[in-house]
Amino acid sequence: MAVSSSDVLIGQGRPNAAGLRRDQLFERWTLLALTAPALLLVLITMIIPVGWLFWLSFLADDGSLSLEHYRRMIEQPSYGRTFLITFEVSLLTTAICIMLGYPLAYVLSQLPRRIANLCMIAVLLPFWTSLLVRTYAWLVLLQRQGLINAWGINLGLWDEPLALVHNLNGTLIGMVHIMLPFLILPVYGNMRALDRDLLKAAANLGASPTRAFWLVFFPLTLPGLLAGTLIVFILCLGFYVTPAVLGGGKVIMVSNRIANDIELFFNWGAASALGVVLLILTLLFIALAARLVRLDRMLGGGPG
């Protein structure tokens, strides 16, 4: 008796509760269903290949399970050198991109929006031509009898042709050119979104333009800069074409090594192991960067 009366009470006191709850559940599942294609794509294009790569890297040449490929990477110093060069080239490219890109993004962000958009198209123009074309174009410009050396010598700026290509210089020039937009875009977006009143407030409170920059503008554009830095650095780690064409065999990055392993030695296991190590190092680097960003937020508590 008591049970049935309380049931009635629930039914009367909270009309349609069960039906509404069902509707909500249905809506949630519908939304989840919408993400299914994306999840499937990630599974097919990411999880499965990477898993397969992992699997291959643990297979010896005769098909048995072994750590042979990883052992070789530790024993042979040339592998260590490859990773060192990869990180060196990536760090240098990223650093040059920051030094060129941050000021450029600043100038763009100060321009009227219409002119800034035009300039932005100019920045993005390189994206519209093939990477390979751009890289070979640099070869034409930079080689010993290339345009730059010819002009330099004609103008009397230097006497001997400079070694601008087939070495680290050429690789860096080519990679910076390709990576620059990836740095400028997030930094520019960050700077545009910044409230102009903040800089006015800093000036009003007594900050000279230099101090206003370092105490207010720079810390507040740091998230964009870190995002751009991370994108550029990670893209650099896996770069193949530019070091292959402009490095002249002297700049061997991990990707070049992987290509060699597969094309010359048909050694999928060794190539996979390289890929796995690069992936892990990259993830470690991202984790480190993420920690740095959080650290910055904590340190950003006060000026000076």
């Binding site: 409230d195 006015k200 407030a201 009003n204 000279s208």
Partner: peptide, 21 residues
């Protein structure tokens, strides 16, 4: 220059620095 004028200002948007407490 603005930073030498020594006037206090309250902005419409408040313009508080979001990276500081």
């Amino acid at each position: 220059a603005p930073h030498k004028r020594d006037v206090g200002m309250v902005f419409q948007s408040y313009a508080l620095f979001p990276h500081m407490d």
